[in-house]
Nucleic acid binder design. Sequence first.
DNA 1: GCCATTCATCAATGAATCTTGATGTGGATG
DNA 2: CATCCACATCAAGATTCATTGATGAATGGC
Lengths: 104, 104
Amino acid sequence: MPKDLTRAARWFHALSDETRLQIIERLRDGEQCVCDLTDMLATTQSLLSFHLKTLKETGILTDRREGRWVYYSLSPEAIEELERLIGSLKPRGRGLRVSLKRCD
Amino acid sequence: MPKDLTRAARWFHALSDETRLQIIERLRDGEQCVCDLTDMLATTQSLLSFHLKTLKETGILTDRREGRWVYYSLSPEAIEELERLIGSLKPRGRGLRVSLKRCD
DNA sequence: GCCATTCATCAATGAATCTTGATGTGGATG
DNA sequence: CATCCACATCAAGATTCATTGATGAATGGC
């Protein structure tokens, strides 16, 4: 069980939820506090907190406390990491493209 | 519930499983029949079939029957689609980066 | 036609995950 | 200290998903 694939699977899982993608969509314009996100996304505070935690644990988001409020933002490295992951899924050079025919 | 996000969530979900990522990893070198994949990945035929179906339904893989064998390969458009999805997660221009401070 | 092979599908179980509602925690205010 | 607010955490239920084992469908050889 390759370690990279385990890591990749976790990243993709964090992105496999609509609510979490909505959170990311909102954070594309910059950091937001939880209360703003609660207003924007029709969801409960408890559920939002759960999804934020999921994204944070994966490394997609970072948080920052300021007084009573907690601000979340996209981790700068997150997009690079994702593009690296996508790169690891790309077909390799066509030189090996012949079928091995081990089934015959 | 934006339709794009629904679609993106489905794609990411398809990639959120280690076995499915292993399948993709194998197919990076070109198409393979199911029997080869069964040998390579320590898994049962039934389970492999389930995961192949998941990937195919999402559009990541295509299949092709040839006699008794079914060959799976990476869909050419899949990687482009993924890069498009990743692009839709990127932070927007920094001009809007000011915090709205609606919480005050 | 009969049988073996390759793969898909189905039903059932168990595990992981999402969701909800209640409670807990830490900071700010008076 | 008492209280309110923003947010996190917890326990319980609901749902979705992965896995297994058995059966079915299509192909090809005899």
